[in-house]
């Protein structure tokens, strides 16, 4: 009984809700999420100019050493500095994450828009394809591609990008379809505005905030997928460092050097939690209605 009541109040009494974010940057999820991600990003960026040791540096005298002044995060069984690996791994994670999201959006957004704008026949066809790709696990798709093309960064990016693009296409189609039912789209048609201009001027500006939230979440999914692929030995080939492979390599020595598992695991977790908080915060900031509800619920 409570939902219709709240709806009734909103439709009858709600004062006009501004469409643009006002004081949303105070959202705690956004701030914490952004801080966590910035930390990862900083690791990746600093690694471009400086890291404690070189990538190939091994210290045979200090294998499986614990954290110390010399090796902040200890070393692995070959004597490689784990903090260096972690920094360079962050670079891989961020790069593959961003590139996969770019691929996913380059495929998903146009496909979703096409489905929403075209007639029922095309829409059904696209929805069918999207559903199949969504049902097909990204990891399985990646393994398939790797067996055909061999493991490489490019294959990992394409595989993750294609896998994620289905979800992007689905969301784009749903949000765009909602916009298409608005009278301002019909009004634009009666103004003689062509379909491409309708997409550019009316549809995209009203769905980009949803897509932006989706992009942050997709980044998190991509980072996990990359770590999983590397863990299975199907991701970025050595010597390029990766959190997934660090995990895999540390597995055999986990009883002697547990910190070697902890650190890359923590890095993946921080990234994913950060991305989700950021996405949540963005949604709160960009969706004024949700923001109001939360504020009301807080009191």
């Amino acid at each position: 009984m409570s939902t219709p009541l709240v709806e009734a109040v909103e439709t009858i009494e709600a004062p006009d809700i501004p469409d643009r974010p006002r004081r949303g940057w105070r959202s705690p999820s956004f701030v914490v999420g952004a801080a966590l991600l910035l930390a990862i990003l900083a690791l990746a960026l600093v690694s471009l100019v400086w890291s404690p040791y070189g990538l190939d540096h091994t210290d045979p005298t200090a294998r499986l050493a614990g954290p110390s002044g010399q090796h902040w995060a200890g070393t692995d069984r070959l004597g490689r500095d784990q903090f260096t690996q972690l920094m360079l791994g962050a670079r891989t994670a961020v790069w593959i994450g961003l590139a996969s999201v770019a691929v996913a959006f380059a495929i998903g957004v146009p496909l979703g828009l096409l489905a929403a704008a075209a007639g029922r026949f095309v829409e059904n066809a696209v929805v069918g394809v999207i559903d199949i790709v969504i049902a097909f696990p990204t990891l399985l798709l990646a393994m398939l591609l790797v067996t055909v093309y061999g493991a490489s960064t490019g294959v990992a990016i394409s595989a993750i990008g294609i896998g994620v693009s289905a979800e992007v296409a689905r969301l784009t189609r749903i949000s765009a379809s909602r916009v298409f039912t608005e009278d301002y789209v019909l009004a634009a048609r009666t103004c003689g505005t062509g379909p491409l201009m309708i997409l550019a001027r009316h549809v995209l500006p009203n769905i980009w905030h949803t897509l932006l939230v989706q992009a942050t979440l997709a980044f998190g999914i991509a980072v996990i997928a990359e770590a999983s692929l590397s863990y299975l030995g199907l991701g970025t080939p050595p010597p390029a460092p990766s959190w997934g492979r660090m995990l895999q390599e540390a597995q055999s020595t986990v009883s002697v050097a547990p910190w070697n598992v902890l650190l890359p695991g923590l890095a993946v977790a921080v990234t994913v939690v950060g991305v989700n908080l950021l996405g949540d915060g963005l949604r709160e900031i960009l969706d004024p209605q949700l923001r109001q509800q939360r504020q009301a619920a807080d009191r």
Partner: peptide
């Protein structure tokens, strides 16, 4: 031939 719709909350793009 031009038209005015029922609900201006829906017929005007909020982001323009």
């Amino acid at each position: 031939v031009q038209v005015v719709f029922q609900d201006p909350r829906s017929s005007l793009n909020p982001r323009m």
